[in-house]
Design a protein around this nucleic acid. Structure first.
Length: 482
RNA sequence: GCUCCCUUCGUCUAGAGGCCUAGGACGGAGCCCUCUCAAGGCUUAAACACCGGUUCGAAUCCGGUAGGGAGCGCCA
């Protein structure tokens, strides 16, 4: 012990990454991958980096990237390097790394590990169809793998633009130890030669993704299970390049309604939707951290606690369903645990709310309604009831008011001077004057004062109502059933 | 079709041969508490996909079957 110098320490730093494509909104499946990656890094006191994989010029859009970063930040994730922050391995946007890709592709080509492929998309699609029909795996048949130099020159001279394929050895197998699934082994004969550079010169995913992970010093990659069977291709590339490959861990997919995997095309389950539906990020994070991953504790955890107890060994192998009922539970928990400043900031996104609630009564208001909230819109309703004009009376409230009768409210108005001692004193005085007790006492008062049959405790609402509002509402109730 | 992955209550899961007549959480039902709703407390229904094998003993190990999923793209 004791001989671990700074360099060695740096070499051991755990680095994870999240590498989305800016081709749509972030959905909960990807958000979970990002979260797990961030938790893993934070737990090991390592680094979490963000890389934008925008090699598909057709579908990538700058505005999606902006939203991606905003969604991630909203979730509460922090990255140490990224397109917005820069860092020692910049640029962090693949569209800006063409020179790097060219260098490494040339290196592979120089080793004879690649060959140009002149097959057209139409030809390839047809070939796949025929293979599938014949009951064979739809793999690249190797049509261009044995082209002579002369043949290649001829086609190039004709102006044909080839894609570049990586030659996969036909013998042997690639093995690796998945962080989540353990030992894996894939035979090379089952892997067809694949494209690493498209005809337009842009790098393909298998290549740029693996290369960047290696170049950026990423040590652990957490990604969707859909990448598992393709991992050998990336390992083969890195091996040919003599680069150090990260350890990969493949997360089971997150399933949506109907057990279909969540995908961005489907539109459902995007963070944008949850966010505009008023879900608190703390709620989503608590839920996501437990979707396919177990914590010994089943109560609400802070981000620091989620980090501390995160464990790759606690990630399951089976796909998990995204369940709104469970999200709702964490939403209630998050509201229960948020401090009032935090809650106010969340609620203040609600239009008009801030204007309705007097600044000096914000904290009291929050604590009063907190137990009755699931969505910010409900706070609006209560702000209206407490600080607005005389509220609409619900049908049940009318019934409660009328069955108490005008005399009850006349007595209540007369009892108002007793209200100095708070709601309890007031209620006691009304009770003494009318003989009403329990439900028969409180329900008419609640109905008259709030217009609803249920809500926060009257004891708490009372101090927020001004004397003028109380009087006006009681007077209205007194004449309602005359 | 081939390769690979997966399979415990409705959902998330605990479980690594006897501690399991399978535990917890969410959701459901009921009761209690209570001025109401919520919260809280208590109770309750609800699962080892199937068939064989190994073993004194299997949710756990092995084999097969069924079902689900992914990959096999000039998408990522």
């Amino acid at each position: 012990m004791g001989n671990i110098g700074p360099d060695r320490m740096r070499a051991m730093t755990l680095r994870t990454r999240f590498a989305p494509s800016p081709t749509g909104h972030l959905h909960v499946g990807n958000a979970r991958t990002a979260l797990f990656s961030a938790l893993l890094a934070a737990q090991a006191d390592g680094e979490f980096i963000l890389r934008i994989e925008d090699t598909d010029a057709e579908r990538s859009r700058a505005e999606f990237e902006t939203m991606l970063l905003a969604d991630l930040a909203w979730l509460g994730l922090h990255w140490q390097e990224g397109p917005d922050l820069g860092g020692p391995h910049a640029p962090y946007r693949q569209s800006e790394r063409s020179r790097i890709y060219r260098t490494y592709i040339d290196k592979l080509a120089g080793q004879g590990r690649t060959y140009p492929c002149f097959c057209t998309p139409g030809e390839l699609a047809l070939a796949r169809k025929i293979q599938l029909a014949a009951g064979r795996p739809p793999r690249y048949a190797g049509t261009c793998a044995r082209l002579t130099n002369a043949e290649i020159e001829t086609r190039l001279a004709q102006g044909l633009k080839p894609a570049l394929r990586f030659r996969v050895p036909d013998q042997g197998a690639t093995e690796f130890d998945d962080l989540i699934r353990g030992a894996q082994r894939f035979a090379h004969k089952d892997i067809g030669d694949f494209v690493i550079r498209r005809a337009d010169g842009s790098p393909a995913f298998f290549f740029s993704n693996a290369l960047d992970d290696a170049l950026m010093g990423v040590t652990q990659v957490l990604r969707g299970e859909d990448h598992l069977a393709n991992t050998p291709r990336q390992l083969l590339i890195l091996e040919a390049l003599g680069l150090h490959a990260p350890r990969y861990g493949h997360l089971p997919l997150v399933l949506g309604a109907g057990s279909a995997p969540l995908s961005k095309r489907e539109g459902g389950g995007s963070l944008q939707e949850l966010r505009s539906a008023g879900i608190l990020p703390e709620a989503l994070v608590n839920y996501l951290a437990r979707l396919g991953h177990v914590y010994a504790r089943e109560d609400f955890l802070s981000l620091a606690e989620l980090v501390r107890d995160f464990n790759v060994a606690h990630i399951g192998h089976a796909p998990a369903h995204f369940d709104h009922a469970q999200l709702e539970h964490w939403q209630r928990e998050a509201i229960k645990h948020a401090d009032s400043g935090r809650l106010w900031n969340w609620l203040a996104e609600m239009p008009k709310l801030a204007a309705l609630v007097p600044a000096e009564q914000r904290a009291d208001f929050i604590e009063t309604v907190r137990g009755n909230l699931v969505r910010p819109a409900e706070a609006r309703v209560w702000a209206d009831i407490i600080f607005g004009e005389r509220p609409e009376l619900s049908d049940a409230s009318r019934t409660a008011i009328c069955s108490a009768g005008p005399a009850f409210f006349d007595a209540a108005i007369r009892a108002l001077p007793e209200a100095r001692t708070g709601f309890a004193g007031f209620a006691n005085a009304v009770s003494a004057a009318t003989g009403a007790r329990g439900r028969k006492l409180f329900m008419p008062l609640r109905a008259a004062l709030t217009g609803l049959e249920h809500g926060p405790e009257m004891e708490r609402i009372w101090p927020l109502l001004t004397a003028a509002r109380v009087k006006a509402r009681l007077q209205h109730a007194a004449v309602l059933c005359k």
